[in-house]
Design a protein around this nucleic acid. Sequence first.
DNA 1: ATTACTGCAAATACTTTGCAATTGT
DNA 2: ACAATTGCAAAGTATTTGCAGTAAT
Lengths: 135, 135
Amino acid sequence: MFKEKAVEALRNSGLKITKPRLWIVEYLDGNKNHPTAIDIFQEVRREDKDFSFATVYNTLDILVKEGIIKQIKTEEKSCRYDPNTGLHGHFYCKNCGKLFDVDLKQTNFLDETISFGKVEDYEIKFYGICNSCIN
Amino acid sequence: MFKEKAVEALRNSGLKITKPRLWIVEYLDGNKNHPTAIDIFQEVRREDKDFSFATVYNTLDILVKEGIIKQIKTEEKSCRYDPNTGLHGHFYCKNCGKLFDVDLKQTNFLDETISFGKVEDYEIKFYGICNSCIN
DNA sequence: ATTACTGCAAATACTTTGCAATTGT
DNA sequence: ACAATTGCAAAGTATTTGCAGTAAT
């Protein structure tokens, strides 16, 4: 599903379906870990799949621009990537660094910003200490 | 007000009130431009006030940790700083890079995250094109 | 007097770039 | 065949670090 949608989006924009791009898309499909570019680079390359750093960044940039994945900035240096583009927020644990998905039921606060301009995207993040780190 | 509160917070934590810290606090007081560390470094040094890069970062880190200012991450590389720590979001214009303050009246979505852990802070950001860039 | 803070310049970490070689269409 | 993409290694950018000297308490 995700992979098919990604491939179609790339194709529609006249972008090539290269091996590295497919590998990265496959890796991200259903991934709930919010990996960094470096995570992706390292983990995908484990499996006899060879490509360079530049390609990871290039591919991730393209996927973000195509709206296939989202980029998330946390308190850490490297940003993370999320194949889930639906409405949700994130909870970042300052202690263990884990990033949790947060459901957001009421979405009406989006309307509040209309006076500034055209909203294309939004990002809602919570910072704190997660339950397992509290205990 | 802001300055006084900042000085008190530093003092309460046993931190020293050094010249660079005061200059930076004074510069941020009432500042609505969401400057980056580099902005702050350059602009404060204009006025016969001399200090180093490391000090800007050191000071900003401390002010963030003390809860006196907030750090905002945008799509740009360098992050920005905001002396306004009250409840508000930000609207980032992808075209001109300006960052606008957004009022948030309903704050109840904060409660939704309690199941994950203890929320200490949150960040709400909107991305889009601002009115002046549309026209 | 004591200890935290600063300045400097070098180090680090992440990301981007340029260009020749390669690959997808 | 053609243009886009890759790989590589080098450059860039923001931020951090170590340590000797300096300033705040």
